[in-house]
Structure formats: C-alpha cells, structure tokens
C-alpha cells in the first residue's frame, strides 16, 4: 500500500512540473517585469530608475532561464524561473507584487473559504441526494416529471441571478441576514447562511439530475429487482440497497473535490465579500498580480492532484477488486 502511494506520488511530479512550466510561459509572455513594476509603483512621478530598482528588489531583473553571468550551479539558480517557479514546489510562494507574503495570506484566507465551501458541499450533497431519491421513489409519475423539469429550469439559470436575486430579497427587502461581510466565531453563522443556501439551490439542478441518473441505473440492476421481489418495500430497497451501492461513486466524487474546497468560490466570495481564497484570486486577476495568480494556479493544481490521489486510495480501500497497479 505504501509503495503504491509512493508510486502515485512520483507520478504527480511531472504533472506539477508541466503545470509549472506552462504557467511560467503564460505569465511572463503576458506581462514583462517592466509592466508589473509600473503598475505597483503607482501613477504620479514614476521614473525609469524607480522601475529598475523595483525589478531588482523583486528578483525580476534576472535572466529568465540561464544566467550566463554566474558560474556552475548558480547559472540555473540565479534566474527568474528558478526563483519564481521552482521554489513553488517547496510551497515558498514568495511575496506578491505588492510586497505581501503570499504563503501567509493563503494560510489565513483558506479558512473562510472552507467555512463556506464545506457546508455548501455537504448540505448540497444531502439535498441533492434527497431530491434524487424522491424522484426515484416517485418514478414514472408526474412528480418525477415535474421534478426533472424543475431541475432543468434551475440548471438553466445563471448563478449570477441567484446571487443578485438572493441578496436583493433576503438582505435588502426582508432584512433577515447581513448583506455581506464575514465574522469570526458565532458571528460567522449569519454571514454564511445566505451564500450557502444560494449555492445549494443553484447546484440543485445539475446535482439532482446527476444523482437521479445514478440511482436509476442502480434501481434497474438485478439485485435490486431481487430485493424488491423478496418483498422489501420500495423505501427499504431504496435506502438500503440503492443508496448503499451508489455510495461508492458518490463518495469518490466528493473526495476529488474535497481538497479543492480550499480554493473557494470565485463569484460567491466576491459578492458576499468573504475574505477567502476565491476573492483573493479575483483581486489578483483584476490587479494583475501575477505572483499571486501563479501561486494560486500551482496551489490549485496541487490540490487537484491530491484529490486524484485520495480518490485512488479510496477506491482501493472501498473496492478490493481494484488492483494496485
């Protein structure tokens, strides 16, 4: 088992290296270090010297890949690529273009992200599964038909409408929750209710349909038919057999996205001004803070890869038939 995990880990390394190189090219073609300096130094009275100074300080004055002015080992280490990209592997994100340590920010901001993403996921899962089960329970009836229609309708509405509408209704008209913001401790709750409800509702359409398809497939399998024939009631078969057997795909589906929850939701966070990683990324995009965007790309990739790894491990744990290839 440990050997297996180790092998899988080794497999992720070239993956991350690929991501790293790709992003490096993207980001250094888009904006030369000169542009970044201009942006950070502000507008009034900026001189060329100031720009050069800034570049030296942020390590952007080095050559991109090979430093011919240095000797041996330093030819490689004294380059922008090594300083800015390779160091990510050690989770040394460096400082943002505005001079703040990215690692510290990420550590701080991932918790609010998690606080909103995790309940959304779990609650969403519960609601989705419940809705799907109901649709399966009442299959071939007009209830199922309208359920599916409702799902499609919910799916067809842009997430932006849910947010704009929800904020307008619950915060502005009904004054039930604060419009936006974030608190710590017990205060957090009142800020989280609305975003969580909105993300659950907006996810209900596609989620409900997806789980319904999953359950329907399961329901028509032989063992379920047998169980039903044995005289188990519909509800019993559904909950005991169908749900039980669908648990594996459900769980593995959840495990993949679990690490990515730290990344937060881009739109939700910026609408509700929740200080998570999602709004952090949006800000960075808008400010063109490439150091942050680079770090977030890398972090996202790492988390995704971890998710894959976890899924593999889960599979082997849950289903003994999967061989440890």
């Amino acid at each position: 088992m440990i050997q297996y995990i180790f092998r899988r880990l080794m497999y992720t390394l070239p993956l991350l290296l690929g991501v790293n190189i790709l992003t490096f090219f993207l980001f250094f073609v888009v904006n030369t270090p000169n542009d970044m300096a201009r942006m950070q130094l502000g507008q009034k009275h900026v001189t060329e010297q100031a720009v050069n100074k800034w570049k030296v300080e942020h390590g952007y004055d080095l050559p991109l890949f090979l430093n011919t002015e240095r000797r041996s080992f330093k030819q490689i280490t004294e380059t922008v690529f090594y300083q800015k990209s390779i160091k990510l592997f050690a989770f040394e994100f460096g400082v943002s273009d505005s001079g703040r340590d990215i690692g510290a920010d990420i550590k701080q901001r991932m918790w609010p992200s998690l606080a909103i993403a995790l309940p959304s996921l779990l609650l969403g899962l519960l609601v989705n599964i419940f809705a799907a089960l109901m649709m399966v329970l009442f299959r071939h009836s007009y209830l199922e038909f309208w359920g599916v229609v409702a799902c499609v309708v919910i799916m067809s509405i842009s997430a932006l409408f849910y947010i704009i509408g929800g904020q307008f209704l619950f915060s502005k008209l009904l004054k039930l929750v604060p419009i936006s913001g974030f608190g710590y401790g017990i205060d957090t709750l009142k800020f989280l209710i609305l975003p969580i409800v909105i993300s659950v509702v907006s996810g209900l359409g596609s989620g409900g349909r997806w789980y319904r398809a999953l359950f329907i497939e399961e329901v028509e399998k032989d063992y379920v038919v047998t169980a039903r024939a044995k005289g188990l009631s519909e509800t019993q078969t559904l909950f005991r057999h169908v749900l039980g057997n669908a648990m594996i795909p459900i769980l593995t589906g959840v495990v993949v996205v679990l690490p990515l929850l730290f990344m937060g939701s881009l739109i939700m966070e910026s609408f509700f001004s929740i200080p998570g990683l999602g709004s952090y990324t949006i800000d960075a995009i808008n400010r063109q803070d490439f150091a942050i965007v680079r770090s977030m790309v890398f972090l996202g990739s790492v988390l995704y890869v971890i998710g894959l790894l976890l899924t593999d491990i889960c599979y082997t744990l849950v289903d003994p038939r999967v061989k440890l290839l």
């Binding site: 991350l16 993207l26 990344m263 990324t281 965007v293 790309v297 996202g300």
Partner: peptide, 12 residues
C-alpha cells in the same frame, strides 16, 4: 485539467 480553468482563461 489540473490547472483551474478560470486562471488559464484569465491569463490568455
């Protein structure tokens, strides 16, 4: 796949 697509789009 492992790069968050939003970021890739933004950069492009």
């Amino acid at each position: 796949n492992s790069i968050p697509s939003v970021l890739l789009i933004a950069a492009s």
